[in-house]
Design a protein around this nucleic acid. Sequence first.
DNA 1: ATATTTTTGTAATGATCATTACATAATTAA
DNA 2: TTAATTATGTAATGATCATTACAAAAATAT
Lengths: 211, 211
Amino acid sequence: MDNNHQDYYFCIDHYRNKMRGRPATYDNDAVVLKAQEVFWEKGYSATSLQDLQNATQMGSGSLYNTFRGGKKELFSKALQQRREAFQAFKKELKQSASPMDLIRDFFSSVALADEHTHLKGCIVANTATALAFIDNDLEAEAVNILKDVEKMFTDTIREAQRTGAVTNPADAAVLGRYLITCWNGLNVTRRMHPHKEKLKALIEMQLSILR
Amino acid sequence: MDNNHQDYYFCIDHYRNKMRGRPATYDNDAVVLKAQEVFWEKGYSATSLQDLQNATQMGSGSLYNTFRGGKKELFSKALQQRREAFQAFKKELKQSASPMDLIRDFFSSVALADEHTHLKGCIVANTATALAFIDNDLEAEAVNILKDVEKMFTDTIREAQRTGAVTNPADAAVLGRYLITCWNGLNVTRRMHPHKEKLKALIEMQLSILR
DNA sequence: ATATTTTTGTAATGATCATTACATAATTAA
DNA sequence: TTAATTATGTAATGATCATTACAAAAATAT
């Protein structure tokens, strides 16, 4: 019998090739996405397994069979889903003709979100904020993602300084750290002022430092 | 009998004037301070009443007799303690000959903290971040404190623009909002980089916008 | 003295927590 | 057809959760 297809698909359940056993009824990625939504609003500590069962419509049996690490594994997978969303943006950035403009647009678009989105903030920054003395592993995962975003900022700025799209001559590493700090700050301030005009002016002020 | 002294002291237990009943063994403010330390590290949701009993050395009987609102009242009192610390700074600012320099020094001093302090961040910003979908009252208290700080920034900047200590002619309200956003951002980024030199350069970059 | 009031410590309380056990269902392999 | 395997749903499990009940302690008031 030919089992090689399993290797191509890395055993992702949805594409599994005639494995033995009852087929899964739940789509794994969709379940993690539902979990992500709950975690994003309530945070890791305040989210119960009952919350996750309600959101995913999965029973504890299936949940623990699929995510043997329980709540922690689910949260980690949710974080990785956000990392992938970031990596998609980074890919878009690489193909862009004017990457610095794309980053500016990204910041500007934050102001346009609705109130609920403002109140949610950024799940990665939320995690870095909340879990330092609760769970080192998850906190480190969040910090790593933020550092990756910072690196993307730094690399983009360094190149933009070369082309003249950024005229501020300061160390690109400092400017990159400045931008990730703008992002981190924005995700608290937008809860104080979930108000388009106020946020628009704020973000313009933040970005004015670059040129 | 003369009971008027009670009124002068607003019934603060420590100064109580011959009230009937067993005298309290615990200092109320010290208990709230201990609670504040736990809440600051673990956050509201992840802090158990057992944690609070351990930290304060109080039994649940005394705890609930003193803080009849339980965990929530204790957290609220802890937040108010931070608000008082802020008000003390604001008072100092009012008496200062160069208020803008005092604010600059405040930001600069953040870089000098030790790693543990960096990882704790700001309990007020932490609360605004974590409790939006958990407890509206406590989240609003935190947001109000942040707005007070923002107002202090704005007022100080407006006056500094008049005296020339700030040369950036932008709307003081936007610059004030920019500064509270710097603070909010710093309190996430310092967890990513609990490193004096990196934070020092970052803060200088943040403040460079003012002049 | 005795009644009144307040604080304290301990022992419930019932709810909810994350996790596990297990029988059943649904599929493929032999 | 039957054995093997995997997923599912339900029902425990024991721990921990926030909170309350209550009796004893320690003070003042009468």
